[in-house]
Design a binder for these strands. Structure first.
Lengths: 89, 89
DNA sequence: TCAAATATAGGCATATTTGCCTACCTATAA
DNA sequence: TTATAGGTAGGCAAATATGCCTATATTTGA
């Protein structure tokens, strides 16, 4: 059994990046008018996975990222353009 | 024990995308003058992983993609710009 | 042709993600 | 207050990626 604190600090590599990425995904998803449930349903994956990705607690795969970009009808590169977009959450 | 044929067809989702992605990574890596061993060493991961990623037989994580882009000194979005670049291998 | 460098292949144990599930939280509207 | 929608949390088993290792194939250069 793993405590969440330990989980965040030791278990995940690059968690800062993952959190930024997740926040950007969340903003993008909302701007496209999707709920987590709708996005998950379109992808055929679990809502809890979307939640975990957006919170940056898992390091999802490149093909999932690709599928998300297709479902949201955004360019996959948009999901990585978050360097300048801080603090609009 | 898993035969390679089965492995490719049933095990991997989105293998077409992963192969394109891998080919694009390979071209990008070479254009930056890196061998697989050099890239793997810079990242602190296994050469065999780089090989597997470039051949599209595994679905690596978003943070590994991010780290690769940093090691190669390219924008992460470049690793996904391969729609138009067919047949230069 | 030969040797060295580079890349591919895969076994095996371990790490991590994912699917499935249930529960809880938070806001909003009736 | 109650109900509903949207999101968060986490346990557990199964699926998949990764590290570590050795071996083999392919390419490159002398």
């Amino acid at each position: 059994m793993i405590l969440h604190e330990f989980y965040c600090v030791e278990y995940i590599k690059n968690s800062e990046f993952l959190i930024q990425f997740g926040n950007n995904l969340k903003r993008t998803r909302k701007s496209k008018g999707f709920t987590q449930a709708e996005l998950a349903n379109d992808l055929g994956i679990e809502i809890s996975q979307i939640s975990r990705i957006e919170r940056g607690i898992i390091n999802t795969s490149v093909s999932t990222i690709y599928e998300i970009s297709q479902a949201l009808k955004v360019d996959i590169t948009d999901l990585f353009n978050f360097d300048k977009k801080i603090g609009d959450f």
